[in-house]
């Protein structure tokens, strides 16, 4: 089926099998490998992206369902080499180790901060509950998000 999506401002048109998950479409068809796969049951959130303003796990959505949508992924956060305050905070607070969960964490935190620019620690933890990190224990991630809260 023909699918047209706009990802980080660029429009792509591809012919895809209906069975293809959005995460595979992004990674394999569009070569946007920043979003990752960490599980096969929708638990880990490493594939989190923002579709038409809504944070979703791209492993639980078919690519064809995203037809016509505007998608934001980790690759679109920074302006060129200019990291966003959130990305800089992750570096400052050592909120990443292996970096595999990081793209999904950043998308979840970005979605949170848009909706609630001044989240409490508890609200941050709730916003990240769908993103698994196995390296950091989350403390520094919460710290990083808190540091950019207004």
């Amino acid at each position: 089926m023909d699918v047209t999506v706009t990802v980080n401002g660029t429009t792509y048109e591809r012919d895809v099998e209906p069975r293809k998950l959005l995460i595979h479409f992004l990674r394999d068809d569009l070569d946007l490998t920043g979003s990752h796969v960490g599980c096969d049951t929708g638990n880990c959130g490493a594939c989190s992206v923002i579709v038409d303003g809504v944070l979703v796990k791209s492993c639980m959505l078919l690519a064809v369902q995203a037809n016509g949508a505007s998608i934001e992924t980790v690759e679109g956060l920074a302006e060129g080499d200019e990291l966003t305050p959130l990305q800089l905070a992750f570096n400052e607070h050592h909120a990443l180790q292996c970096g595999y969960c990081t793209p999904g964490m950043l998308m979840s935190a970005t979605a949170l901060l848009r909706e609630n620019p001044s989240p409490s620690e508890d609200e941050i933890a709730k916003a990240l509950q769908g993103n698994i990190c196995r390296c950091t224990g989350y403390w520094n991630i919460v710290e990083a998000v808190k540091s950019v809260a207004k």
Partner: peptide, 22 residues
């Protein structure tokens, strides 16, 4: 506590993990 040099690529989704190699 020097800030990590490897972070920038990882924060931009520009790390190269094994499934990224084609």
């Amino acid at each position: 506590s020097v800030k990590r040099k490897e972070d920038k690529r990882l924060l931009q989704g520009e790390g190269v993990f094994v499934d990224d190699v084609k």
